[in-house]
Design a protein around this nucleic acid. Structure first.
Length: 238
DNA sequence: CCCTGATTCGC
DNA sequence: GCGAATCAGG
């Protein structure tokens, strides 16, 4: 299989949509998970929560291997050339004139340090907030009013945080009890997935109508009719 | 072991 | 450019 435009597009969409490489490969067909990952990288759409540590980066130069334990001596570059890795060490500022280099990321211009204020005055007299409205309607803050550590914690992915408008008023999983019909409407995971919600046919988990769908008399052989649609609408088409 | 993504490297 | 092999964490 080759990477046609369609396939690349699908790969890109799914990758960005959060699908795993396996899922994508499965979907595209004819390619392996590795192929998908490799292609994704070549396309430049990296950056995904990787199971592997983003930690120390030996950069594939474990030259300092402890006595060396090459599981598989690769025919190539088997020789650990000593002349390698001219990694620019951040240290050893040998002959460097030291201009006003802000080496340490010291506490940046912090607006206020009320904590270490041994001031006799009870800290912070309630000053009237100076707030104005800027163009566009945003609230303008005075200096020092910066509300800093508010990392908005980007949404994880795909999972609707709250019931969408589609499902408003519909019977959700939490609404189920043994008096209402739990016949599924739509597919689980989809935004408007819900349950029938009608009053059940007493003694059954479904309403009368859906009991009719769920429980069907076995017809004699040869007189079978095409099977009715299954719950969930049958197997997912993909 | 299964899964995941990252990386390498021969092709 | 491609992807199997390999690695490494969960």
């Amino acid at each position: 299989m080759s990477w046609t435009d369609e396939r690349i597009e699908k790969l890109t969409k799914m990758w960005e949509g959060g699908a795993t490489a396996s899922q994508i490969a499965d979907e595209l067909g004819g390619v392996s998970r590795n192929a998908v990952i490799g292609k994704a990288h070549r396309l430049g759409l990296k950056a995904r929560p990787s199971p592997v540590k983003p930690n120390e980066k030996p950069a594939r130069a474990p030259a300092a291997a402890p006595a060396a334990a090459p599981k598989k001596a690769k025919p190539v570059d088997a020789a650990p050339a000593p002349a390698r890795a001219p990694e620019p060490q951040p240290e050893a500022p040998v002959a460097r004139a030291a201009p006003p280099a802000p080496a340490a990321p010291a506490p940046a211009p912090r607006a206020a340090e009320p904590a270490a204020a041994p001031s006799t005055e009870p800290a912070a007299a309630p000053q009237p907030r100076i707030v104005s409205v800027g163009p566009g309607g945003f609230l303008r803050q005075g200096p020092g009013d910066q509300q800093q550590p508010i990392p908005p914690a980007p949404p994880r992915r795909l999972v609707p945080a709250k019931p969408s408008a589609d499902i408003a008023g519909k019977t959700s999983l939490l609404d189920l009890n043994d008096r209402i019909c739990r016949w599924p409407m739509g597919h689980p995971g989809e935004p408007d997935f819900h349950f029938c919600g009608e009053k059940v046919n007493p003694g059954f988990p479904y309403c009368v109508e859906h009991c009719g769908r769920a429980y069907q008399a076995q017809l004699p052989r040869g007189a079978r009719r095409p099977p009715p649609p299954l719950p969930f609408g049958g197997p997912r088409v993909r």
